[in-house]
Design a binder for these strands. Structure first.
Lengths: 159, 159
DNA sequence: AGATTGTTGAAAAACGGTTTCAATTTGACT
DNA sequence: AGTCAAATTGAAACCGTTTTTCAACAATCT
């Protein structure tokens, strides 16, 4: 049965994904599909951790193991579909790697973990330059500003 | 016996450290002293993780627990003596916080973890700006470029 | 359909970091 | 120097995140 109204992840996108995976000897599975769907439905620049993806899928009635999620995330980072963010707080976050250069960066509250995105185009240039200068193959630049957010500024720090 | 050639951590430095700690109700202990000594003897811009500090001290015949090291690192970061770096790879690194603004950033190989430092003065300005714009109190900026180093570029990536 | 190879989920393990707690050390004050 | 309260320590237990192991399962190839 075929529909004229493609779902959020259109069958076109799906075929592309499948081809992409198969080219490298990987397979398109329901789990990988669902995980990527979540990222595609996210507001621009938003990011998730493994546990949040697990919760989202489980709540939606999917059965998936947490290890599958970790494996899929690594795979997609290696394939360039996702970008891994390291904003301290002891866990990794992931966001959709838009085709364009990475121009948005992060302002992180070290107390509560709140994250503010901001655009800044001047970083990419510096990243490209430095990578080249040392013979490195550039993957990704991240500019992270650690600070204390307005809400947390009132509170004391503990020793 | 007094010498005209003060050791790496001079007694002057030591007194300063003691005063600094005591001001905030903390105490100068042998362990904290030794940890800071390691950082002071490190080449400019070099960084270490907790486990490496533990190894260094243990090999030097000191007895110190790993938890003491973590506690001391946090304390020194809070006091502004050290800077905490988050260069992916799932653990935190620390470097001496030089009195000047933080103008050196990192190029990291995502395969082998090799780190290259580089100077770049334009970042700080952006960090200050963005923190201000969102009402955050700036602590620290980190620009990190993720890439593959020349050595690792030959090798395959695993799925 | 059958063979081959990639993928999965559950459970166990590894890992970095934190907390607990009794024993010890430090700094302040006689 | 001696006493005392408070800070600090190390060992062990613990925690949350991520990785590994392994037997069962599913996608692709012939």
């Amino acid at each position: 049965m075929s529909s004229n109204f493609p779902p959020a992840t259109s069958s076109r996108n799906l075929e592309q994904l499948k081809t992409l995976l198969n080219q490298e000897g990987f397979r398109l599975t329901r789990q990988r599909q669902k995980i990527l769907e979540i990222f595609r439905s996210l507001p621009e620049g938003d990011h998730l951790g493994a546990e949040e993806i697990y919760q989202t899928l489980t709540n939606a009635g999917e059965t998936i193991g947490i290890s599958t999620i970790y494996r899929a995330l690594h795979l997609m980072v290696n394939m360039g579909l996702l970008r891994e963010l390291d904003l301290a707080e002891g866990r990794k976050l992931y966001e959709l790697a838009t085709p364009s250069v990475h121009e948005h960066h992060h302002l992180v509250c070290v107390q509560c973990g709140a994250v503010q995105e901001f655009e800044e185009t001047s970083m990419a240039t510096v990243g490209v330059q430095e990578a080249e200068r040392h013979g490195f193959a550039l993957l990704n630049c991240q500019f992270t500003v650690y600070a204390v957010c307005p809400t947390c500024q009132g509170q004391l720090r503990s020793p």
